[in-house]
């Protein structure tokens, strides 16, 4: 890896809004009380590259522990990556100074799985939504109230609800608040980290529609992190699949789901419950569970669980490379 162009972009997309190259996040773990002996690092993210174009949705999928959330937080520099680069609108996010970072945060926002954790329990919904504008120095108190009322209205909440406290709203309403808060600053990119997985089925569809509508209206780009593959297929233009800190495959959503190129993607998709009871499926049941990211790695990280592994796979690491226009995979089977 380490090539000049970040992989994953389709031929038709223009310049990248977000470009992530060789992103690495390692955590040092202190083992059993001894300060002197620290164990091998936990490689949460281990060389990830991708691009997101303006107005596009990149879905990021994979089992828990694969590093999806760490990528999302690193992109916004909510955590400090150990290496690699993040470029947003041509600016180096990781090198940005205080003032520049403040300006960047206005353009890149995040929506979390648990919106109530991101809200001050003592502040009204309207105040929380307007807060970002005041911190950014973009608005006076009166202007921020006006703007908060506009975005809350846009996400389907009433003026009365904007005066309420977080605990007075339902889960679906709170996620609307989370989205309004992200929208208030008029961002270009929103990282959505499992935005609907805590919601009831009938409410999930309402929130997905809101995200789709907002994208169409404002040309928003989404980095959409989720474990629900049917949902990711529905909302994404392209999808990247993560395993043990690496992207193992990326492709346009339809192609990835209809014709997966990596054995891990195939296994993941075959585990999704059927759309219909008559849909008899050939299931690739993966042995075991995702291994610890601290285990020393040699060869392909998926090899120990891979139904198609060859001798070579536990010796050499396959390169993440373009296997067809717009389609990337790290697997020797595609050679």
């Amino acid at each position: 890896m380490g090539s000049a162009t970040a992989p994953g972009a389709t031929a038709t997309t223009g310049p990248a809004l977000l470009e992530v190259t060789d992103l690495v996040k390692h955590y040092r773990i202190r083992s059993g009380g001894s300060m002197a002996h620290s164990g091998p690092p936990l490689r949460a993210v281990d060389g990830v590259s991708f691009r997101v174009a303006a107005g596009e949705t990149l879905g990021l999928v994979g089992e828990s522990g694969g590093g999806k959330t760490t990528v999302g937080l690193s992109v916004l520099r909510l955590i400090r990556p150990s290496g690699g680069s993040v470029t947003f609108e041509g600016r180096d996010v990781l090198a940005a100074g205080r003032t520049e970072m403040k300006a960047l945060r206005q353009r890149m926002q995040i929506v979390f799985q648990d919106p109530i954790g991101a809200l001050d329990p003592r502040k009204s919904i309207g105040d929380s939504v307007g807060e970002g504008l005041r911190i950014q120095g973009l608005a006076s108190r009166a202007q921020s109230h006006q703007r908060a009322a506009e975005v809350l209205d846009r996400v389907g909440l009433t003026a009365a609800q904007s005066r309420s406290l977080p605990h007075e709203l339902s889960g679906g309403q709170l996620q609307r608040v989370g989205i309004a808060r992200a929208l208030a600053l008029d961002p270009r990119l929103v990282v959505c980290d499992e935005p609907v997985s805590a919601l009831d089925v009938s409410i999930q569809a309402q929130i997905i529609n809101l995200l789709l509508d907002l994208q169409a209206e404002r040309g928003l780009a989404y980095l959409f992190i989720a474990h629900d593959l049917a949902l990711v297929r529905h909302i994404s233009d392209r999808v990247a699949v993560m395993y043990l800190g690496r992207i193992v495959e990326s492709a346009p959503a339809g192609e990835l789901f209809d014709n997966p190129a990596h054995p891990y993607t195939r296994a993941l998709l075959s585990a999704v419950p059927a759309d219909h009871p008559a849909a008899a499926r050939q299931r690739i049941v993966l042995r075991g569970e995702i291994p610890s990211a601290t285990a020393p790695q040699r060869g392909c990280p998926f090899a120990p669980r891979c139904p198609d592994a060859m001798a070579k796979c536990s010796e050499e690491t396959p390169e993440f490379k373009e296997i067809a226009p717009g389609r990337w995979a790290a697997c020797f089977l595609n050679d």
Binding site: Q204, L212, A253, D275
Partner: peptide, 15 residues
């Protein structure tokens, strides 16, 4: 309202 019941990137039917 299941995503599988609608065309990709189209609005989902909602309750």
């Amino acid at each position: 309202s299941r995503p599988a019941a609608s065309r990709s990137k189209s609005r989902l039917r909602v309750i």
